[in-house]
């Protein structure tokens, strides 16, 4: 037993050290999982995740940003459309039309016709808790169907949630 004590002590310290290391590694992996919505909105995949549209509601205003696909959600992707018409289904309220108008980010050098941010205003947005919107957009030169699900987001490859 006396001879085994030093060995047990070293083994204990090694287990403790490796345990701490693996805790850190696990933490690091969790940090890199999921796509980040950089404006605090919800992400909705475009096409086969060639891009996303991030949507956020502030009072009576809906702001949408077209951003990159995959983990590239920190990169704006300007599109040529000046406005985008959405057919919005709100539970209990039927279908409505919402027009997103280009709102260029001037500090990013954008202008109408080369713009990644779109804004729409409507009184009913103040009280909406959930909706689904459909439209079409030419994104990266290809016509795509747009499907926006609020507040869960739309990401069929990684599950409903956007985070």
């Amino acid at each position: 037993m006396k001879n085994r004590l030093p060995v047990l002590f070293v083994a204990f310290c090694t287990v403790l050290f490796l345990g701490k290391l693996s805790t850190y590694s696990n933490g690091a992996e969790e940090h890199h999982g999921g796509h980040e919505a950089h404006h605090g909105g919800v992400l909705n995949v475009i096409g086969e995740e060639v891009g996303h549209v991030e949507v956020r509601i502030e009072g009576d205003t809906l702001v949408a940003w077209f951003v990159g696909g995959g983990h590239d959600t920190n990169r704006a992707v300007p599109i040529k459309d000046k406005e985008i018409a959405l057919k919005v289904s709100v539970p209990g309220k039927g279908e409505m039309t919402l027009i997103l108008n280009a709102s260029p980010m001037k500090l990013a050098g954008e202008k109408v016709g080369h713009c990644s941010r779109f804004v729409a205003k409507a009184d009913w947005l103040r009280e909406v808790k959930e909706f689904q919107a459909r439209g079409e957009v030419v994104f990266k030169g290809i016509l795509h169907e747009l499907l926006i699900k609020y507040p869960k987001g739309h990401d069929p490859m990684h599950g409903q949630g956007s985070h």
Partner: peptide, 9 residues
């Protein structure tokens, strides 16, 4: 965050 995103583009 919005300002940072905009300038960083």
């Amino acid at each position: 965050q919005d300002l940072k995103f905009e300038i960083n583009q």
